[in-house]
Design a binder for these strands. Structure first.
Lengths: 233, 233
DNA sequence: TGATTTATGTACCGTTCCGCATAAAAGTGG
DNA sequence: CCACTTTTATGCGGAACGGTACATAAATCA
């Protein structure tokens, strides 16, 4: 019951054979690859795989599911991404990349604290509630509550994601504090944990299909606390 | 990939045949049941099953796992609790019962707000971090992030659990407010969501094996915010 | 004692699972 | 046109899965 998980995979990574013969960057269309061309685009296939994992979880997803979603058959999947676990890890990294990028854009917009946080939670809820068949929640939270217990590598990824989010919020609060938008007595770290916790609770509730207005209300209440409840009402 | 889940089970519940012939209450040793006596105690077997589900999740738990954990073989399991899904539901209810009881005891102690909350989070962390092989987090959060998406009945259970916790915290804050421990401007509902959110975030982090001191620090920061940061430092 | 009732233990069913072996296909390079 | 390389396609193999049939065991009732 425990040893069925492969914490450290004995899998001889299938891409390791070709050292670096072609394509140092992704999707360079020019230089004429040698053999039969791929029938898929690695990045879109990975996005499809992420969709399935995100919805069904690792244990709930079969290779046939992934095969159907990506349009690739199992050997191609294996050749492109390695085994199921490696594909899951790559999917998670793709998820984090996407989230990081969207949150980075919001941060760069450099708005006043309250608007900034409103935008961030709007983006988060947008991700959590998206998916053509029902809301999916937060992939980091899902991974934490499932595979993170057994697999040290995945656990490290999850922790990295969690602290990255904490630090992101802390930076926002620190910046706001420097601008005088927050009292000097406020603790950016405590506020960042509150902000992350709000993210987690709406992710969990979204997954249980709590309707969006309720989630918005939770966010609004948290924002009132974080921003000092002044103005806006 | 979707229809493999059984939202409404066509399972003809195996206990339905005996209307209510014996044992209206649990474990009444006296009244002489008819056939071969059970080799297990239903409540302890259920607790063992909960342990496995809690750690491994629904999809990650096999009937062999459950059989090994409970000491019952599959037919006995089936006869006692129904199929895997029904056993999961019964396990979840057992979990909620246990949590409700422990939290109820804390509530009855009727302490000042801060001590009350400290005790509640101590109980929660105690549950989240328990388990002989690693922390397990919150079973409600785990169920929300996995089975709640597919199975309406399980989803309803999860939502019931979530709002029950929200209301529990709201009652605590309302009581504190009536006693003057909180300013009249405080919103018990907003605070209750913050309290639940803190529960969720430490559950997620516990599952990722964040060490207890960090979790304690997060709780302390949240308590400072909830209780107005006065005193205690 | 023998019939009946209930639970257990074994072993199996059909399905699904993951991974891979092997052959066909589709390109490039000579 | 023929090697060579890389990907796709088919499908197999062994294991694990959830669930159940069937025979056995252990108790009560008559």
């Amino acid at each position: 019951m425990v040893q069925k998980r492969n914490g450290a995979t004995p899998h001889a990574t299938p891409q390791a054979k070709k050292a670096k013969p072609t394509q140092p960057l992704a999707a360079s269309p020019g230089p004429k690859r040698r053999g039969r061309p791929r029938a898929y685009q690695p990045d879109v296939a990975l996005a499809r795989a992420l969709d399935v994992f995100w919805k069904e979880g690792f244990a709930g997803t079969s290779l046939d599911d992934l095969s159907a979603a990506t349009g690739m058959n199992r050997p191609s999947l294996y050749g492109a991404f390695g085994d199921k676990r490696e594909l899951y890890i790559k999917s998670y990294e793709a998820y984090r990349d996407r989230a990081r990028q969207r949150m980075g854009e919001a941060f760069a917009a450099d708005l006043p604290l309250r608007e900034m946080l409103e935008r961030i939670y709007a983006i988060a809820l947008d991700m959590y509630l998206s998916g053509k068949d029902g809301p999916r929640g937060c992939f980091t939270v899902m991974t934490a509550t499932s595979e993170a217990v057994f697999d040290p590598a995945i656990r490290d990824l999850v922790i990295t994601g969690l602290v990255e989010t904490d630090r992101f919020f802390a930076r926002i609060f620190r910046r706001a504090q420097e601008r005088g938008e927050l009292p000097a007595s406020a603790d950016p770290q405590v506020l960042s944990h509150l902000a992350s916790g709000t993210l987690h609770t709406i992710a969990v509730r979204a997954r249980a299909q709590v309707p969006r207005p309720e989630l918005d209300a939770i966010v609004k209440g948290a924002l009132d606390l974080m921003c000092g409840a002044k103005a806006q009402s």
